[in-house]
Design a protein around this nucleic acid. Structure first.
Lengths: 334, 334
DNA sequence: ATTTGGTACACAACCGATTGCGTACCGGTA
DNA sequence: TACCGGTACGCAATCGGTTGTGTACCAAAT
């Protein structure tokens, strides 16, 4: 059974032409009832499955959507992709995944592979090291729609979905200040990400508002690896005046940093307090989770991303890009 | 730029035929140097990208591999898919993901969608509710290779990759007994999974060996939802003689069960001990993780799965299915 | 001048479908 | 009998490539 049955085979066995078979299978009215039935019957009997590649060639579509993100193993992204898949499947699309591993070159390659492979549209969350949009401009030139989500590219005309992290950071820091914690450090992400700028902006805003001096050594950026986070956290704890609280770039950074604290004998939520972004489900299993988290609703973001992408694919003429901001929510744990 | 440039367009502008353009782009020796250069030049100038669908049609391949698994958000699976993607990308394949959500119907649908969509091969980890292989037999009939991994189907001729969980369970239970814990309960998975049988078998083997009577109420199966796990764990704790230790189906079951224990005031690793399967990375963040875990190496399993699949795709004639058993490892935490 | 051989390309079939248009054949009407 | 309209298909182009085979044209050899 190495060759699948084709319409040609059905046509041959029935003594009709391929076009008749095609129309019969589509129940086209110009095909006689008798012929239509014979075609359907033989098709079923031969386990006929239409060749999607041939159909795609005519339709000039692949019904594949590429998704490029830093890492599938980060729950934030797997939730987003899960959402994308849920919507896509319902609309007849499949989802092709590629990981950038936060590496610029891998991201370029992933994008290029997707284009070469044939996809109708792309959803991207930037690699932390990406500082150049040329590969995306290339995709735009080919008329393939892109939607950025969460880690969006700066200065690109495409649609994007993200959370207002500045506002989130503001509420988070306000919360810490309100609890009397004023020595607040920021374990921020890579400088290349817009998300990093936004967290910093919120952090600075609140401290300024409350007249709290901003200590340079309190603001550090990590490259999102466990090692770098540990290094930066240790540096913070080695300061003459170590912080009472940490605003972490995301849950992974918070957890890695918390581990350092525990190793140094500090008690979480007592000696030192954490607030982080994402609020991933596994945080609920921790005995001492961050006292507050900013929920970013990855599922909703993924859903919105593909809802923006599909019209761009299906009706490019009437499509205008949109910047969608998903509301965050500060989750406070007792 | 709604229509991508085709070879036809290049041919027209250069006054040659499409076949010449095709061969020129492939640097076929029968094309003159001058012509070849002109073709390459114009192709670059027009941003020519070959239409993958057309090529796939001739090659009778899609270079897409379908992966169907219960949930992307489970780290075990996202690690496996990550591995699959790493290998696939290197061989020129893309990975299409579908989630079954442990639902039989969704699994059927996912498989059917993949076949309709056109993929060269499928990698599957069974939905917990799947008890029927007809959809896989259908795929076999079409000559599309399948590789099962981790949650493998019973009585199927296809290749599969899994961990010898019986041996793992034996070592795990031996470890508990050696620590003097003899009142051991088993929070097992759904009866439809072979993995469930295997864990049970290992559990029974060790208890029999040590002459420990097997208490029926100590063996319970959960459907892998948080609610069901909580219910079953509560039932265990409500027994006249509650267990001292729990062998959990996987980390998620263990964590959900541990949460119940904590809510009831029990101290983990003191009042009650857990051993579970998977050893997911996030366990390292827990203050009180299971005292031991059986590492199942999802990355290695994913890698092996696609290494089994690719030869089946590329050389179906000389392919014979294989059952590969990945060695587990019991990770003991101090 | 004719044959020979190689170069450099054209022609056309093919992959598996879809679809616009043409037409044979039918019975019914003038 | 000749004309007409509808039914039920066939023919062929098309999507965008790949590839086997045919051939015009050239220079070199005879």
């Amino acid at each position: 059974m190495v060759h699948a049955t084709t319409m040609k085979e059905i046509a041959r066995q029935l003594g009709v032409t391929v076009s008749t078979v095609s129309r019969a299978l589509q129940n086209h009215p110009s095909i006689g009832l008798r012929t239509r039935e014979r075609v359907h019957e033989l098709a079923k009997q031969l386990d006929y499955v239409p060749n999607p590649t041939a159909i795609n060639l005519k339709r000039r579509r692949t019904y594949n959507i590429g998704v490029v993100l830093p890492a599938l193993t980060e729950q934030f992204f797997s939730m987003a992709i899960s959402a994308i898949e849920d919507v896509a499947i319902g609309k007849g699309y499949s989802v092709v995944v590629m990981q950038s591993r936060n590496d610029y070159e891998r991201e370029r390659l992933a994008i290029s592979n997707l284009v070469k492979h044939g996809i109708d549209g792309i959803i991207v969350s930037l690699a932390s090291e990406t500082q150049n949009n040329s590969h995306f401009l290339e995709v735009n030139k080919h008329g393939i729609p892109i939607v950025f989500f969460d880690r969006v590219a700066k200065n690109m005309p495409n649609s994007c979905v993200y959370v207002d992290l500045t506002a989130g950071a503001i509420e988070a820091v306000e919360y810490l200040v309100a609890r009397g914690l004023t020595k607040i450090a920021l374990l921020n992400g890579p400088g290349t990400l817009q998300a990093t700028d936004e967290r910093l902006k919120g952090y600075v805003t609140v401290l300024n508002k409350h007249g709290i001096a901003i200590s340079r050594p309190y603001v550090r950026s990590v490259n999102l690896t466990k090692e770098d986070t540990a290094k930066k956290m240790n540096e913070l704890l080695d300061l003459d005046e170590p912080p009472q609280a940490i605003l972490a770039f995301n849950d992974y950074v918070a957890l890695d940093a918390m581990q350092v604290c525990r190793q140094r004998g500090l008690v979480i939520n007592q000696d030192i307090h954490f607030v982080s972004f994402s609020n991933l489900p596994f945080c609920s299993y921790l005995e001492q989770p961050p006292i507050a988290s900013i929920e970013q609703f990855p599922y909703e973001m993924g859903t919105k991303a593909i809802q923006l992408l599909l019209p761009a694919i299906e009706d490019p003429q009437h499509y205008t890009p949109e910047k969608v901001i998903i509301p965050y929510q500060l989750i406070v744990r007792e």
